[in-house]
């Protein structure tokens, strides 16, 4: 038996490629002018336009946290956050977590406890944890559990918890 499936309604997107509007993003303290659609998720502006590939794509629906960046002090899942909303905001990606890429208390704890396994989710883990510690310098177990909704398939959760606690003690 043969049948056919037709997907989706058609609608025109990508209306903003006429160059009439540039998006200005402030990422890790640097301003970037981008000629992209306003609805493009910040994730893809970071990865494919600015070549900041530390922020990862994994689910595309804000369900896993691999794409987490900091925007004005909040942990934001950039895969569903349009660049138009990110304009003029202060964006920090994993590349900007510390100036030297190793001196943030979380980065130190992560290395000390050898947290990452495959590592693919770890940028998002670190950015989520960094925002948590900025909001609560000595988080309770409950706060850690609530904040750290990021998915890790390798199962580094045990060490993530320990490393957050270690970093909070150091900070």
């Amino acid at each position: 038996m043969v049948c056919s499936l037709v997907r989706g309604d058609l609608k025109q997107v990508f209306s903003n490629k006429n160059g009439e509007k540039m998006v200005v993003l402030n990422v890790n303290g640097k301003k970037h002018r981008l000629d992209v659609e306003p609805e493009m998720p910040l994730l893809w502006a970071l990865r494919d336009e600015l070549k900041l590939t530390g922020t990862k794509y994994s689910c595309g629906v804000a369900a896993c946290g691999a794409c987490t960046v900091k925007i004005n002090g909040n942990a934001v899942r950039s895969c569903v956050f349009p660049v138009s909303a990110a304009e003029k905001q202060e964006i920090t990606t994993i590349e900007g977590l510390s100036a030297d890429g190793k001196s943030h208390p979380l980065q130190k704890a992560w290395v000390k406890l050898q947290v990452p396994q495959c590592g693919y989710c770890q940028s998002g883990m670190l950015m989520t944890a960094a925002v948590l510690l900025e909001k609560s310098s000595n988080p309770s177990d409950q706060e850690i559990n609530q904040a750290m909704q990021n998915i890790c398939r390798c199962g580094t959760y045990v060490r993530v918890k320990k490393a957050i606690r270690m970093a909070s003690e150091e900070a």
Binding site: M1, V2, L5, R7, K11, P41
Partner: peptide, 24 residues
Amino acid sequence: ADNWWRANEALKLLPVSWNITDNQ
């Protein structure tokens, strides 16, 4: 496409039909 998101968004809009077997 020149950007993965553009490729993926376009794919969502692409009318596609399949020959489906009894597996359905």
